[in-house]
Design a protein around this nucleic acid. Sequence first.
RNA 1: GCUGAAGUGGUGGAAUUGGUAGACACGUUGGACUUAAAAUCCAAUGGAUAGUAAUAUCCGUGCGGGUUCAAGUCCCGCCUUCAGUACCA
Length: 894
Amino acid sequence: MEYNFVSIEEKWQRYWREKKVYNSSNSSDLPKYYVLDMFPYPSGSGLHVGHPLGYIASDIISRYKRTKGFNVLHPMGFDSFGLPAEQYAIKTGQHPKITTENNIVRFKEQLNKLGLSYDWDREIKTSDSSYYKWTQWIFLKLYNSYFDKEKNKAVNIDDLKIPKGLENDQINKFIDSKRLAYIDTIDVNWCEELGTVLANEEVIGGLSERGGYPVIRKPMKQWVMRITDYADRLLEDLEDLDWPESIKSSQRNWIGKSEGAEISFQVDNNNKIDVFTTRPDTIFGATYLVLAPEHPILDLIVAENQKEEINKYKEISSSKSDLERQENQKNKTGVFTGSYAINPMSNKKIPIWISDYVLYGYGTGAIMAVPAHDERDYEFANKFNLEIVKVINSKDDFYSGSGEIINSGKYDGIDSLEFKAVVTEILEKKGMGKKTTNYKLRDWIFTRQRYWGEPIPILHSDNGTKSIDEKNLPLELPEVDSYLPTADGMSPLARNDEWKSVSIDGKKYFRETNTMPQWAGSCWYYLRFLDPKNEFNFASEESIKYWMPVDLYIGGAEHAVLHLLYSRFWHKVLYDLNFVNTKEPFKKLVNQGMILGNSAYIFRKTDQTGYVSVELEKKYSTQKILVDIKYVNEKNELNIELLRKENSQFEKAVFEFDSTFKVHREVEKMSKSKYNVVNPDEICEKFGTDTLRMYEMFLGPLEQSKPWNTAGISGVHNFLKKFWKLYFDSNSLKVDDSKPNDNNLKVLHKCIKKVSSDIESFSFNTAVSTLMITVNELTAQKCRSKEILEPLLIVLSSFAPHICEEIWERMGNTESIVYSSFPEYSECYLQDSKKIYPVSINGKLKYKIELPSDFSKEEIEAAILSDEIFIKKLEGNKPKRVIVIPGKIINFVI
RNA sequence: GCUGAAGUGGUGGAAUUGGUAGACACGUUGGACUUAAAAUCCAAUGGAUAGUAAUAUCCGUGCGGGUUCAAGUCCCGCCUUCAGUACCA
């Protein structure tokens, strides 16, 4: 009987879907286990072999946990608001909804082909109004809350104490200024190319995260989320999470907590400048101040004769993009203001400068420069010939460490670490400073000037903002005639005039026309999966109580700060408002590594006379040209004929090579533009889904990035064929009721133990190896005992579910293997008859000695812990004296 | 620069608490079956030296030191690669 994977896989995928085998119930006596994948954005290009890695891993865990007796929740959905569909709409006029729907159909088909055990009845799409109704609802919760600093939590805005003596208008303004979701005019990251504002997290090195377009700063009115109030809690609660250290440290880094002091420098009778420093101990070395060019105090303090130059500098720096600012890192610029301030400790008069190496957005937007002990100040002082005073004892001209204080008057000799606290205290007494903490984290800019996102349920009027009544949610996306921003730069929603203006009780309001960022929908989707059809709540209280937190969250590391920080923030707000019962949403996080593509390049001679194979490349001056990997075989040989046939530019090209034309390979991210995408569908057709699933796991550790390489796939495929042959010979099932022998039992129980511990520790590659060894051994032992082969089937079924279901059925089981339980192993089959100890003589030779198996554990331990025992050396017959040094060290003395 | 992860055969990668390094798989070579190929099965496969041979000896986990009877694993100092982040005072 042949292993016909095509019909087997089709049959079982249909069976699972029709019988809804993987649906899970919200009430059960069983312990729960919630396994979540980071849901995908349904892009137009479908899945490549990199996507399934995490899905397969989480699927194996889900299947394993089910057989271990857990009620498993394993849902899937789509993060379906997003840019590409909108950009496609701008180009073609097709409604993003249609594009998105089409892509989702394709994605689902591909996911189902992978045999993933999702409960599709819980599917959600963030762009469905029944879903974004609740995204809007949560937005309103944020809008209607403020952060109580004393309680260190979010509280309903109705409980806000309003200062006495405020007029009506002022009261509204006061309330608006305290909300967790508030409007502010701030310098935003404006991306002209994308026509929208981006969050700080979405800007990388002055370029947009998506597309890599330049980003400039521009003041605009925006909705902002007060995530900074949660900085401390977001930081502290990281401690207890079972997350990769790298992710935790990027989040810590992003929050960027630093402790120091705010110190005032008096300029004149009316003005003082506050600076933030983490090194108050170096204050005697502060020989000048530097302000950010945007600092508002400048207008008050700039000396008359410097005004022109200062204004010129301000203008230049405001027109600079973040990228340009960063490029200038080595060549610092700046202008003297003509004014001086008094150093509050040394009482010296020090000059005030402006420079764009000081950022207005961080700290107070002003620094005290200590050139002897800060690298940037050192560069700046050298360039502009400013005074450098060493205040910490060291050999070098510049030193950023700690040590003995010098040149600081009566404080000389104190240790700088100690002096830090002393200075802060002295200044505090004088009213010239205080201890403070600063964060790199900024509030989250929440609005986007886009069409394809959640509408913000807010109305504007002359006296401020007003939320839409909860009863009227969802606020649906209006139809528009074009998906481009309006001529006056408003978001596309403003094109629908009828929708835009509303009147309530005779009063006129305008709708907010900006939409939410893509992160909004993914901030809380893990909660909607619990109870996706609930019309009265985002999820029922019972379902939250039963399922939360997510036990295992698998996804890519690219969401280390963005998604994972935002959703933790929202979850904490919901926790404060008593909507959820856990402080953190995701208990354990695992990052699957990226699967990289293996791009192919050929060399073109620079004189354009032809192409040369790799071995001839050095002979000519050449440049690399990308070719589609479909023209290249596993031996890196180029199929020239096919290339010529399908690409006219190569039709008459000359190809030079020795024996065969070989291409140059490079490992890169898998992407359409690199022509290195491998589609999982092809693999499924050729080898079957079970082979693909096991191969992706076999490729290497889950967390590691690795290039896709089809070369080894036949090994896994052969394994499944061998596995099949363990159960069937040419005509029929060969499993029988014969009693297994000791060796059979040993092999099986070893396998059960190893595979289960490997799965629990996410070491899927070694689990696959173990399964291979097991099948090899049982084949060699000619085992046909049902007592062995049936449990083995269950062990393998998490990895290769289709083949196992098929064999399971053919063995006479009527119920799906999904409902079976994972076999237990017993230690008695695992014990070796003899214990082997390694022995070294004088540190050089190594022997194995075997202690008799009837040595009890206690006897061995006693022997080891006592001074010496006599043991027969294996190869010789003379007994040797063995000295056992306490702590398991065995040393021969002859 | 800082933070995090990693460096093991021709390749992907295994190695509980330090205890026979290279499991498992690919590839390669040889063999069986076949008219032939595919498929399948068997054997060998880190390097070097000696030997007809079984075998023996030495060297081997990025580099240099150290601890230890014993180090891929622990400690110190470097190098390289990947990822993230960056004028954050």
